[in-house]
Design a protein around this nucleic acid. Sequence first.
DNA 1: CCTCAATGTTGTCTGCGCTTACATTGCCTC
DNA 2: GAGGCAATGTAAGCGCAGACAACATTGAGG
Lengths: 197, 197
Amino acid sequence: MEKAPYHHGDLRNALLDAARRIVERDGAEAVSLRSLAEDLGVSRGAPYRHFPDRDTLLAEVAAAGFEEHAAAYQGFLDTVMDPRERMALTTRFYLDYGARKPGLHRLMFESDLLARNPPPAVLIPPADRSYRLLVDIVRQAFPDESEDAVLARTITAISTTIGFLTLRGAGRFKAFMRGGLSDADIDAAVIAAVAGR
Amino acid sequence: MEKAPYHHGDLRNALLDAARRIVERDGAEAVSLRSLAEDLGVSRGAPYRHFPDRDTLLAEVAAAGFEEHAAAYQGFLDTVMDPRERMALTTRFYLDYGARKPGLHRLMFESDLLARNPPPAVLIPPADRSYRLLVDIVRQAFPDESEDAVLARTITAISTTIGFLTLRGAGRFKAFMRGGLSDADIDAAVIAAVAGR
DNA sequence: CCTCAATGTTGTCTGCGCTTACATTGCCTC
DNA sequence: GAGGCAATGTAAGCGCAGACAACATTGAGG
């Protein structure tokens, strides 16, 4: 018969994993250090040994999200040869990811973690990496455009994609559905607007 | 010497006004019924006489926001004659509004109030009205397009606009600023992407 | 073996949403 | 006017959460 050891063993990573699962499903608001501790069979003060506060934990979850997110469409650079098709696939990947993990998506793209002064240090490298990757993909899809135009296009492209997910998540498109447009139609319209101009 | 009357007089509207001010400046998360009650000099239970819960109050604040928002660019339909220019002005109005009242903007376009089942009844008419107005503006700016195309374009247009505000608010464009693009350049790029295709 | 740093526990404070039981007020009717 | 009643406000309390401080336990290195 196993008796529970005084020390958890790897509480830090266990907290990150558990928080991540909750964020993916129910959003960052649903994460509570207390209930996390309870789930992991540990006292409510224990998490503070590993994270000074709740936001620091969430920042690490978001950082891991950016890593995973960027790594996934990094692959398109190697496997998909046509630059325009690559851009369309990247957009579709964003849409799928946002639909599959809405809470994590919100934490990454809507929370004000990166707007803090200063932003959490763990968050900056993966966020920058993801941003640079995206600019590369846009640049190769529109090779004739100036660098400023490419940057501007990257901004509008990601704005369209993220905004669409935000608004759909907020239920603002329910009214549009009565207009005979299917989900697939709308997805296609977004992808066309981003990649097809 | 005035003694405080037992009844506030118009607590309901006082709550709405106070909540609105806090939402505009600091976001809906900063609204607490307790501190609202304290500010207005009533007991902490008093607000519950007027709103069954916090979300109901926030829904009314959002509804008022949609009214004001739509009324403002309703004016463009009457005063601005060129349909494309009208569309550009509407976009600029969205951008200004989001920059001026970020918290209210988030409550209106990012919160999940409208995604509930059922959504708060007070919210549906103003949200629908705002949506129809927007479709009208897009339809007149692109009169040759099919109705489905107009709907799709409305969706991508508002997605671009709201997404841009969301991402800028989330600090995700800080990295882009180092690329030599000014705020005005980026605003212009968004407006061009929405209205100028 | 002993010490110490890392890690986990317990108790406490504050603030919040929400509910229940009770108090005050003003209006409406007779 | 007096009585009654609905609207409105107060007071107290529950459960949950974040954060901190004081204390306990453990294991690794000197």
